[in-house]
């Protein structure tokens, strides 16, 4: 009985896992490459990472379990880092006269690197949650 129930695919779990993982992969895609070369870091990828991260955060709202609270915390950290990266990018492209210099690119990418770390923790939590659920 219990095995059957556990093996049933839950759509909610699929969507949740999809967004958490997608947030991490997009973030990674933006992050990878020479840190100071603007040509290697696509702005569309950063935009997608921000949007998917926000959706992942909202999906974690209202879960009152201990692991749910940590999930929400990591997501909020990732959001904060990515929004900081976006603001830096806006400053470099719109306000600063110098444009996307290697220094500006490096700070945007390093901020997204911090978000990547938080996203990896999120993925780790997802894996832990999944394995403990299977064992039960």
């Amino acid at each position: 009985m219990c095995r059957d129930e556990a093996q049933l695919m839950s759509l909610e779990k699929v969507i949740f896992g999809f967004f958490v993982l997608l947030a991490a992969t997009l973030n990674f895609g933006f992050f990878i490459g020479d840190i100071s070369n603007p040509a290697l870091h696509n702005e569309y990828e950063l935009f997608a990472a921000v949007v998917v991260n926000l959706i992942a955060t909202v999906l974690k709202f209202g879960d009152r379990t201990q692991i749910g609270a940590v999930h929400l915390a990591t997501s909020l950290v990732a959001d904060l880092q990515l929004i900081a990266a976006t603001l830096t990018w806006v400053y470099a492209t719109q306000i600063s006269t110098a444009g996307m210099t290697p220094e500006a690119t490096a700070s945007v990418v390093s901020l997204s690197g911090g978000a990547l770390l938080a996203n990896l923790v999120s993925v780790a939590l997802l894996v832990i949650e999944t394995t403990t659920f299977q064992r039960r």
Partner: peptide
């Protein structure tokens, strides 16, 4: 927050 999950995701999308 729980009740606002769906509307917020729709808005973000």
């Amino acid at each position: 927050l729980r009740r606002m999950r769906a509307p917020l995701i729709v808005l973000i999308l």
